[in-house]
Structure formats: structure tokens, C-alpha cells
């Protein structure tokens, strides 16, 4: 007979699974239905009916057709990809360089500098929105893709530095010194010794920075505006003052989560290793 603890564990896992997966299943199911089918409910007490409504219906691509119909959704998708990709391309290499300096160089007060770097990430984005808006407006970056990328870099770079420095600190200096003995310079030692060892950590940083930029709504709404409208903002506009296009929102939501799911699956091994890197030190 299974132990009560084991039963409880599986029960807890089952509840957690249902709690997290049900909304996603509902979203996927609704995105393949016609608008009137989304609002169908089974009769009271018909639990089997819920299962039928979620999984057995006449699938239709009408919601996807309608969101891609006028090209604006596709344009938001491209903006999201560009804003996320560019911000990660800037934040992670710059973060690597800064983290390396903070980890290896003898900089006076680097402990305080390191802490200061991460404090810039501690304030909620809304708290810095007014100064950022005024600044962006004055430099002509408002409602532009470069302006939005810069906003994401502002938040992602400190995070990347903070995360990557932790990974670098876990690499023994002796390994690097061995490379110097072999005639490598700092860049050579970094590329051939440190980078391969912290690659899982870099993967985790890429994922986490991407998720911040990809899912961001506030910066895209205020700073990106009309000129750099990303998917979260585009999808939110499907709810107007007189009508909420639930089917299109569900289809848009599905399109939006797919790239992150694919990215997560592609580097899931690195992600797990990366997130646990430095947890134990010898």
C-alpha cells in the first residue's frame, strides 16, 4: 500500500498540474473554436460535458485567420521578435564583459558597484516610467524600435551582469591561469575556458532576459506606443470598449507563448544546469 506521504505528494502535484495547465488548455482549445462555441457551457453538474467542450469540437482556424487578416498582428509579432532579440543581443554580451570585469578585475569598491548595478533592477518599472518617458521624448526615442530596445536593455543589462557574475565566480581562477601559462591572453582564456564552462548560465540568462522583453507590456505600451507595438500591446487592443474578441485573444495568446516554449525546450538542458550553477561550491 502506498505511503500517505507519497499519496499526498502526488495529489499535490496533480492539483498543481491542473492549476497551471488548465488555463493553457482552455486557451489552446478556445483558439481553435468559433466565437459562439467559446462561450458554451455544459449543463449544471455535467462534469463530462466540460471535457467534451474542451477537447471534442469542430476545430476551426477562424480566429487565427482573423488575427492575421490585416497584417497588423504579423507586424506586432515581428516587432516583438526584433525588440526581444536586439535587447538580448546587446544585454548578454555587454553583461558578460561587465560581469567578467566585476568577477576578475581588482576594482576598488567593486562590491558596492555590484550591488548598485542590481539596485537599478529593484524598482518596479512603473516607478521609473515618468523620467524614462520624459528622457525618451527629449532624445526622440519615443515610439521607436531603438527606443524600446534601449528600455529593455536598461532593465536587462543589470540583471545579466548580476546573474553572469555569479556564474563566473564559481569558475576557479586556476583554470584561467592555466590558460595564461599556455600563452593565452585574457580574451583567449575567456573564450576558451570561462565561456564554455558558463554556457548553461549564459543560456539561462538569455532565456530570462528574453522572457522579460517578450512579455513586457508597460514599456511597449508607453515607450513603444504606435511606432513599436509589440504582441502584448497588440493583443490587449483586441479588447475594445465595446467588444472583447476572446477568440482572437486566445489565438494571439497561443502565438505569443509558442516562441518562448520553443526557446525553453531548445535550451532546457542548459537552462536547468544554468539555474543550478553555483548552488554548490567545492
Amino acid at each position: 500500500m502506498p505511503k500517505p506521504g507519497r499519496i499526498l505528494k502526488w495529489l499535490g502535484l496533480a492539483v498543481f498540474f491542473l492549476w497551471t495547465v488548465t488555463p493553457i488548455v482552455f486557451m489552446i482549445s478556445a483558439s481553435f473554436k468559433g466565437t459562439s462555441d467559446i462561450f458554451k457551457l455544459p449543463p449544471l453538474g455535467d462534469w463530462g460535458g466540460i471535457f467534451n467542450l474542451l477537447f471534442f469540437f469542430d476545430a476551426s482556424l477562424v480566429q487565427f485567420e482573423s488575427i492575421f487578416h490585416d497584417g497588423s498582428f504579423f507586424s506586432h509579432l515581428l516587432t516583438s521578435i526584433a525588440a526581444t532579440g536586439l535587447s538580448v543581443l546587446i544585454s548578454v554580451p555587454a553583461g558578460l564583459a561587465a560581469a567578467y570585469a566585476l568577477s576578475r578585475a581588482n576594482i576598488p569598491g567593486k562590491k558596492h558597484l555590484y550591488f548598485w548595478v542590481i539596485t537599478t533592477r529593484m524598482a518596479p518599472p512603473i516607478a521609473v516610467m515618468i523620467p524614462l518617458y520624459v528622457l525618451w521624448r527629449s532624445i526622440g526615442a519615443l515610439h521607436t524600435l531603438p527606443g524600446l530596445v534601449l528600455a529593455y536593455v536598461t532593465f536587462n543589462l543589470p540583471f545579466a551582469i548580476w546573474l553572469l557574475r555569479g556564474f563566473m565566480d564559481s569558475i576557479p581562477r586556476e583554470l584561467e591561469e592555466a590558460a595564461y601559462v599556455d600563452g593565452k591572453g585574457r580574451i583567449g582564456a575567456f573564450m576558451e575556458i570561462i565561456f564554455p564552462l558558463i554556457r548553461p548560465g549564459v543560456g539561462a540568462t538569455v532565456i530570462l532576459c528574453s522572457m522579460f522583453a517578450w512579455n513586457d507590456y508597460l514599456f511597449a505600451l508607453i515607450l513603444g506606443g504606435r511606432g513599436a507595438k509589440t504582441l502584448p500591446v497588440g493583443i490587449s487592443e483586441l479588447a475594445s470598449a465595446t467588444q472583447i474578441h476572446w477568440g482572437q485573444i486566445m489565438a494571439g495568446g497561443l502565438v505569443m507563448i509558442l516562441p518562448m516554449v520553443i526557446l525553453g525546450l531548445a535550451i532546457r538542458k542548459s537552462l536547468v544546469t544554468g539555474l543550478t550553477m553555483g548552488a554548490m561550491r567545492g
Partner: peptide, 16 residues
């Protein structure tokens, strides 16, 4: 924009 988003943008824009 929807009213909430409109409010945020408009207040920021004017007060900026």
C-alpha cells in the same frame, strides 16, 4: 487605446 492605457499615456504625456 483602452481607457486605462489611454489614461496612463495621456497623463504621462501632459505631465511630462
Amino acid at each position: 487605446d483602452a481607457m486605462d492605457a489611454l489614461k496612463e499615456k495621456l497623463f504621462l504625456d501632459l505631465r511630462g
